[in-house]
């Protein structure tokens, strides 16, 4: 799976969860108030299941999950 592929999958998921369209890949979704802190838990669930990865205690840094770009980079790194 290419980096761009992952970006579009993640972006589609976030757009469908937040009811918005045209999400910029570098936008900080938490800072911009697009999602609330409860979304962090849902995002963990989604990423682990969709990409068959295990997110461990050492990965728990909000900077990995703040935008489509950073999430894709994190997933590529984990796979």
């Amino acid at each position: 799976m290419t980096d761009n592929n992952i970006k579009s999958i993640v972006s589609e998921y976030i757009e469908s969860s937040t009811n918005i369209t045209g999400l910029a890949y570098d936008m900080d979704i938490f800072e911009e108030g697009l999602v609330n802190s409860l979304f962090a838990i849902e995002l963990m669930t989604y990423l682990e299941k969709e990409f068959s990865i295990k997110i461990t205690m050492d990965d728990l840094d909000m900077s990995h999950f703040k935008s489509v770009d950073s999430i894709a980079a994190f997933v590529v790194n984990k796979k």
């Binding site: 962090a40 838990i41 963990m44 669930t45 997110i55 205690m57 728990l60």
Partner: peptide
């Protein structure tokens, strides 16, 4: 602090 957002941290 901050880790209450992560299910992995709650489980751990």
């Amino acid at each position: 602090p901050g880790f209450e957002k992560f299910p992995q941290a709650i489980i751990s």
